[in-house]
Simulated assay, not measured.
Amino acid sequence: MTDEAFQRPPDSAPQSLVRLLQDFSLEANRYVDTAGSRKDMHRTDLNALAVIMRHTAKGLVVTPGVLRKELHLSSPATTALIDRLDSSGHVTRERHGSDRRQVQLRMTPKAFQDGGAMFMPLSRHMGAAMAEFSPEELDLVTRFMTAMVEATIAARQEASDGGPSSPGPPA
């Protein structure tokens, strides 16, 4: 491997802040794994429920195809996932009103109850940490985190398109 592979982020992205974001991502993933395992749920199960919740909140119909695409799963893996969530009482399959051939996925009250129980400690600790900041500071952090999410999405899309994995030479 060349020294080029170990280059630091550009000066516009302070390395300590990038490391903190990486640490946050790692700890959030560890929390999800720990909380999910207490309810015998895998990370993919929890990600599926998050997708269903997000789409439902926007008034969108959630189908197995939506889940497959969002979670980058094969059709058999998606079916197994939905079967697990259905068997555990977290999701129901319903026929969509306008197209009876289309299956719609809905979260059950049990999913909301279990999700609340799993994520209440995280919510409580994060709420206490946020209480230390002014509304203006929280607005700034919200803008920053929104930009970081958008940057991560752009990088993921670039990686999936086979685009450049590192910036080109300075202009």
Rank of each mutant, 00 (worst) to 15 (best):
G115Y: 05
S134K: 03
H72L: 09
R84Y: 05
A131G: 14
L73K: 03
F133Q: 11
K110I: 06
A129N: 10
S74Q: 05
H125G: 11
D139L: 14
L138E: 07
V91G: 00
R101P: 03
L138P: 08
V91Q: 00
G97M: 12
R68G: 09
S98V: 14
L140I: 14
E70C: 07
L140T: 14
Q113S: 15
G89V: 00
I82Y: 07
T146M: 10
P135Q: 05
M120L: 13
T108C: 02
R93W: 00
H90L: 09
T108D: 01
P76H: 05
K69L: 13
K69Q: 12
E136Q: 12
V141H: 04
M118N: 09
V66E: 13
L140E: 13
G89K: 01
L85V: 06
G127V: 06
H125V: 11
T92C: 00
M107A: 04
I82W: 05
L85E: 05
F112D: 13
D83C: 03
A129V: 08
S123G: 15
F133M: 13
L73R: 04
H125W: 10
P135E: 02
V66N: 10
L85G: 01
V141C: 09
L140Y: 09
S88G: 09
R124F: 14
E136W: 01
Q102V: 15
F119W: 06
L140C: 08
R101Q: 12
D83W: 02
L67D: 07
L73A: 02
A77H: 11
A131D: 15
T108E: 00
K69T: 15
M148W: 04
G89S: 01
A128H: 13
S123E: 11
A111C: 05
V91P: 01
F112W: 11
R100T: 11
S134I: 04
D99T: 04
G115W: 03
P109M: 05
P135V: 06
S87G: 09
Q104A: 14
G115N: 08
R68C: 09
A77Y: 03
L67H: 04
L105T: 02
F119I: 09
F144R: 05
S74N: 03
G115M: 03
F133V: 08
L67M: 10
L67S: 07
H96D: 14
E137C: 04
P109W: 01
S87E: 14
H125M: 13
S88K: 14
T108Y: 00
T146S: 15
R124Y: 13
S87L: 08
M107G: 06
T92G: 00
Q102N: 05
R106M: 06
L73D: 08
H125A: 14
K110R: 12
A128I: 11
I82G: 05
M130N: 11
L71Q: 03
P121D: 01
G116D: 04
G116W: 12
M148D: 08
H90S: 01
T142I: 00
R100H: 07
H72F: 12
M120G: 04
V141K: 07
